[in-house]
Amino acid sequence: MLKFAANLSLLFAELPLPQRFAAAAAAGFPAVEIQFPYDYPADVLATAAQAAGVQVILINVPAGDLMQGGAGLAGHPARVAEFAAALPVALAYAQALGARMVNVLPGRLPAGVSRAQALVVLAANLARAADYFRPFGIRVLCEPINDLDMPGLLLRTADELAALLADGNCCDVGMQVDLYHMARMQQDIPALLRRYLPAIAHIQFADAPGRGEPGSGALPLAQYFALLGELGYTGWCAAEYRPTARTQDTLHWLSELA
């Protein structure tokens, strides 16, 4: 049976972040993830998670100005020191929250830098992050993101990510695959899952094209989940969608798909 988690950066957003842990638990989620938890003290979030009895499975490493439209940190030759400085920040939160995975967003192509140069920097930063987190039992992931919602992204498909991770220095970096992003890039999702499942450490999902809850768009998510079950996927599937109504009113899929 698949395991479903709630992304607290998008779900239950009608509540302050510390209150979303209890809301997720009440809705039936045993685990949660957070994109960027850094606006709240780590101990405040850890206390809320523990009180709600939910497991925090993943957070993102700080990404600089990426979410504001900038190039971010991970693929920028002039921001290598900033990326290195983000790692202990992410570690402190991951340890406080008990997260065993951290995700590195690939960033946009910086002005004046070739894609080949940026990818070399990204690969080196991923290897550095993996080395940094490995002694703490925390795995580093990386995620391709569609360039329709976020133009200029360095990694847009699972194939592009897999090619980068083929570098021997990145061999223990896991793939994070968001079915929504791959659908937006018109990827063959069943073929993608069959090909890359051994390397996929974490899956996220939303319906497409609107990034709403399952059933709000055109993706056959139930079929994808059935395939994951057939393939023996044992990781988490995290709901990272923008609810079209109150989150509690969009959770029909949880009992239907689980």
Rank of each mutant, 00 (worst) to 15 (best):
D159L: 10
P220L: 10
F136N: 01
A81W: 13
R115Q: 14
L227E: 13
V89F: 08
M67T: 10
G98W: 09
P209Q: 10
A51C: 00
Y38S: 02
S114G: 15
Y233W: 11
R79M: 03
Y40P: 12
A85M: 09
L153D: 02
D172F: 06
G217E: 15
C142K: 02
L193W: 09
V120E: 15
E143A: 09
E256M: 14
A48Y: 02
A118I: 05
A26T: 00
F29M: 01
A129H: 08
R194C: 05
G98Y: 07
L192S: 06
G210V: 15
N169R: 15
A130W: 02
G215E: 14
L197Y: 04
V177D: 02
M150A: 14
Q95E: 08
T250P: 12
A48V: 01
A199G: 08
L164W: 13
F21G: 00
A163M: 06
F12G: 02
L257G: 10
Q176I: 07
V89R: 12
A111T: 12
P243K: 11
G215S: 14
A218W: 14
A22L: 04
G72D: 02
L141H: 00
L126E: 03
A218L: 15
L66T: 05
C170K: 12
S114N: 12
L97G: 07
G212E: 13
C237I: 14
A201D: 13
P37I: 06
A208S: 15
G210R: 15
R194M: 03
V120Y: 14
L197W: 01
A85Y: 10
A183F: 04
D149V: 12
Q19Y: 03
I200Q: 01
A6C: 04
L73D: 00
G174Y: 01
Q55I: 04
L164C: 08
D188S: 05
L45W: 01
L153E: 10
L193N: 04
L155W: 04
L231V: 07
A24Q: 00
L193S: 04
Q35T: 10
A71E: 03
P243A: 14
A90G: 07
A74E: 06
A27W: 06
L58I: 09
L165M: 09
R246Y: 10
D159E: 13
A24L: 00
